[in-house]
Computed example of a mutant assay.
Amino acid sequence: MRTTNAARLLAAGAALTALTLLAGCGGSGDGGGAHRADEPVVSKAAVPPPPVKPQQARTLPGMPPVLDPADLYAADRPGRLSPVVKDFPSLVYVPNTNSDTVSVIDPRTYRIVRTLKVGRQPQHVVPSWDLKTLWVNNDRGNSLTPIDPRTGEAGKPVAVHDPYNLYFTPDGKYAVVMASMDRQLVFRDAHTMKTVKAVPVTCFGVNHADFSADGRYFVVSCEFSGELLKVDTAAMKVVAHQKLPLRGAMPQDVKISPDGKLFYIADMAANGMWILNGDTFAKPTFLATGKGAHGLYVSRDSRVMYISNRGEGTISLYDFARHRLTGKWRLPGGGSPDMGGVSADGKVLWLSGRYNSEVYALDTGTGRLLARIKVGSGPHGLAVYPQPGRYSLGHTGIFR
């Protein structure tokens, strides 16, 4: 009797197992199916979610998109010339402030090939936003002289009052005149140069600037009162200002870091540069570089910034990644390195010799002086042109 009952129980258990297996093979409400014993079982929790597309930065409307948020100078790589400028002859344009001329140098021969007569006290040669024109800032002449970079010839001057320096908004709509003596930032139509809005400032000597990564604001240095301004680009309004924490400070050139997080401001009285968080606009830190720190120029690989120390005839090298100075080049026989730019191939740093009526060409790999070229009196903001980049933000060539 026990044996019969046991057999019946075994048979019932086998039938139940068979039904369970059939149910498993037939599919389920969640779409599952059978698998072979040698197939791995993948948990749904282990399946990675689809990649999330990174959101684009909220930039100034009309501004070209940022190529690489980690490197604002990504468009400035060696030889990466815009179709607009690729056929322009390579030349160096040197405004001689005291001679009222522009010396035009052939960078291959290191010889002056042309001397242009311009307005009174030319300070900087500035590439336009669309890269098609070079503007000579005739500060005391109250005019801008256009140069056609296809021919190297000067055109008819345009009346603009007190144009010490010149910048362009990232959307290409406006030129911003640094009217130093007028104590104004003057927004003008980028093509006609007609005034759109004149913004009074409380500081003295507005002179240099650079724009934030998103183009929504820019930082301006005030040379004669030792102050910095933060300006809303779209509103055309000063939204913050601060006094540098050093009596007698004289801030000069301004450049943003490749990652867009910091601004560097050269200071010729403090003999170094201030390092500022533009977003918070908090009190900056300071790094000594050399006597009379004046110009700031980024290498073609975005790794190094060249700092011209006008008062001691040297150029300091600043490493962005390591946040420190890594070397210093000294001009043989001395000199007064001021403003300039880097050649299109990145191999030569060109700087004006403000107090020596000369221009310097230095090898960016070694710091060796390649040439010392005599020019007019008081050479200042020279422009190397053309240079890589999609558009110009002004000065002697800030390209994005």
Rank of each mutant, 00 (worst) to 15 (best):
A45H: 11
H294W: 06
D76C: 13
V186H: 12
T4H: 13
S316I: 07
Y93H: 01
I147L: 02
R80T: 06
G389W: 00
H323C: 01
A154F: 04
V113F: 02
Y167W: 09
D162L: 15
G29M: 13
V220S: 07
G152L: 11
V84M: 04
I398S: 00
D182C: 03
G32N: 07
H124M: 03
V304M: 11
S302T: 00
D148V: 00
P89G: 08
T59F: 09
N5G: 14
F88A: 07
D171S: 10
D319N: 05
A293N: 11
G335F: 05
A7K: 11
A74V: 06
A270K: 02
Q252P: 06
G389Y: 02
V199D: 07
V206P: 15
P61E: 06
T366A: 01
G381V: 03
P50Q: 09
R2L: 11
T396F: 00
G365L: 01
T233C: 05
R322S: 14
A70K: 13
P95G: 00
A15P: 07
T280P: 01
V84D: 02
M193K: 04
L325N: 02
L22P: 08
L67M: 14
A198D: 02
S128D: 01
D345F: 02
G397H: 00
L296W: 00
M193S: 12
A344V: 07
M268R: 15
G141L: 06
Q55D: 10
Y110I: 03
